[in-house]
């Protein structure tokens, strides 16, 4: 699996990371939730990480400075690693013989369960960093809480990922403060970038029947309980950046049900092109 759609999977790869050597049996009896719900959850988290990695990876060589190319490539790589573990787990639970590559590169648009926030196009660097702030702050709270999940595989992925995401958030925070509390031009663009991504933040905390069941089984963290921390943490950054909180009642949604925005089809076309044009191609 690759971020830029230009590199097929290396052949002869070792077993993808799990928390133990043997795959967890589908329908994880310890937690009492159905394997369908668990597959959905692993896909939601995995698709968020995968699509965010794809968006970030495609910016490399177009960023304002060399250090930024390296930083964004590293963040994308961490997210891709998280996506690989989560999609591999989803494939094992599903039991239809699909692995990370089939799930990432052969599903159609309506089968992707990522939030719309991660698929938004990077119109401006301020959009990229504003979005990364909202997303990494969410991931940090989520992964830390997920470390206590009754699902051992998810808890293992989360414990690893939480430490990485703290660096992503730190990076986004520095840029949002630097641009927001910068020149008149950078302040205006950062405020505009934030306004563009802000409404899509609500979907991160959306609770449907699947999420409710997973929360009750203590597999997924209580999203409602995570939201105040997310809001106050971002609020602190905005205050330091001299940026105004965004007032909006528009809360787009649908990603968790496979409904996506216009740019998502183009993103998938680029990400999946090689695999679809040359099925079975090996590196």
């Amino acid at each position: 699996m690759t971020t830029a759609g230009s590199r097929p999977t290396p052949a002869g790869r070792p077993t993808p990371p799990g928390t133990g050597g043997a795959p967890t049996p589908p329908g994880n009896r310890a937690t009492g939730v159905t394997s369908e719900d668990l597959v959905t959850y692993a896909l939601r988290l995995g698709d968020d990480a995968l699509i965010m990695a794809q968006r970030l990876g495609s910016l490399v060589t177009n960023l304002p400075e060399l250090e930024e190319d390296l930083a964004v490539a590293n963040i994308a790589l961490d997210l891709l690693g998280q996506a690989r573990a989560l999609l591999t787990y989803a494939g094992q639970l599903e039991g239809k013989g699909r692995g990370e590559d089939e799930l990432a590169l052969e599903r159609d648009e309506r089968e992707f369960l990522n939030v719309q926030l991660v698929e938004l196009p990077d119109r401006d660097f301020a959009v990229t960093m504003g979005r990364l702030l909202l997303f990494s702050t969410y991931q940090l709270g989520l992964y830390r809480a997920l470390t206590g999940s009754r699902d051992e595989t998810l808890a293992g992925v989360a414990a690893k990922a939480a430490k990485e995401v703290a660096y992503h958030r730190d990076h986004a925070e520095h840029w949002v403060v630097r641009l927001g509390d910068g020149t008149e031009e950078s302040h205006a663009r950062m405020q505009a970038g934030l306004a563009e991504v802000w409404p899509y933040g609500a979907e991160l905390f959306e609770v449907d029947a699947v999420q409710e069941r997973l929360e009750r089984a203590e597999v997924a963290p209580d999203l409602a309980a995570l939201r105040p921390g997310w809001e106050s943490s971002i609020g602190e950054v905005l205050a330091e950046a001299t940026l105004e909180p965004v007032e909006t009642s528009w809360e787009p949604s649908g990603g968790r049900r496979g409904l996506h925005t216009e740019s998502f089809g183009y993103l998938l076309a680029e990400m999946q092109h090689l695999r679809r044009s040359h099925p079975g191609a090996r590196w």
Binding site: G12, P14, T15, P16, P17, G18, T19, G20, G21, A85, E152, A155, G156, V157, A159, K160, K163
Partner: peptide, 27 residues
């Protein structure tokens, strides 16, 4: 993973399996 497998094989062990685990997380 590949180099570990080769190294252990070269040391005279025919059957080698390399497992990658995430937990506990590396520090």
């Amino acid at each position: 993973a590949r180099q570990v497998e080769e190294a252990v094989r070269a040391a005279g062990f025919a059957a080698v399996e390399v497992r990658t685990v995430l937990s506990p997380p590396w520090t």
